[in-house]
């Protein structure tokens, strides 16, 4: 008898909490019916600098870019073919260029061209644990000293660009 009396307030509290929770859910359901996708953000990756062309049509790239990159990686490492249009550095040069005055967008940043879709599709890749996740400054965009090949920055200028305070 004593036990029943003492548990009565507890039931009251639980009941109030349950009704509150249900009402919140109801509000949320109403919100979601207003906007069809609720909180899901459809990725809209940034357009490349030179948006006139990609190495393949967009539909092909969306579906098959990983196959191109994997094939390219083996021919590059084993056979030294570095001029293929499917190089990862080539992708990054257009899609995430390091420009003179902008912040460096890293792969961890959802604004990064690759991670915007990968996070949406729950894809976890480790390309950028080794590879550079941003492109190079082209000779037209920058007055930095370039070495003999205009596609390649020297390491020193490249690092200073990432962190201007750093002195190698």
């Amino acid at each position: 008898m004593r036990l029943r009396l003492s548990s009565l307030p507890l039931f009251l509290v639980l009941g109030v909490l349950l009704s509150a929770a249900l009402s919140i859910c109801g509000v949320n359901a109403a919100d979601q019916s207003a906007s069809s996708f609720g909180q899901i953000v459809i990725p809209a990756p940034a357009k490349p600098v030179d948006a006139s062309h990609c190495v393949e049509p967009v539909e092909v790239m969306r579906r098959d870019h990983m196959k191109f990159l994997k094939h390219q990686r083996d021919t590059t490492v084993l056979q030294g073919e570095r001029d293929s249009k499917y190089s990862l550095v080539g992708c990054m040069n257009c899609h995430n260029p390091t420009t003179a005055n902008e912040e460096v967008i890293r792969y961890e940043n959802p604004k990064h061209f690759c991670s915007s879709c990968h996070s949406y599709a729950s894809v976890k890749i480790d390309c950028f644990e080794c590879h550079a996740d941003r492109g190079l400054v082209s000779s037209q965009q920058s007055n930095l000293t370039l070495n003999s090949d205009s596609r390649q920055l020297t390491a020193q200028t490249f690092n200073q660009k990432l962190d201007p305070s750093r002195v190698d």
């Binding site: 030294g80 990054m92 480790d126 080794c130």
Partner: peptide, 26 residues
């Protein structure tokens, strides 16, 4: 590692050595 250079990808858990500057040779 962070801030690797595009010509020399390198990362934790792998072994590395002189490449004879293979990117220049290619």
């Amino acid at each position: 590692l962070r801030d690797q250079l595009p010509v020399a990808p390198r990362g934790k858990g792998t072994v590395e050595s002189c490449t004879l500057c293979v990117h220049r040779i290619d």
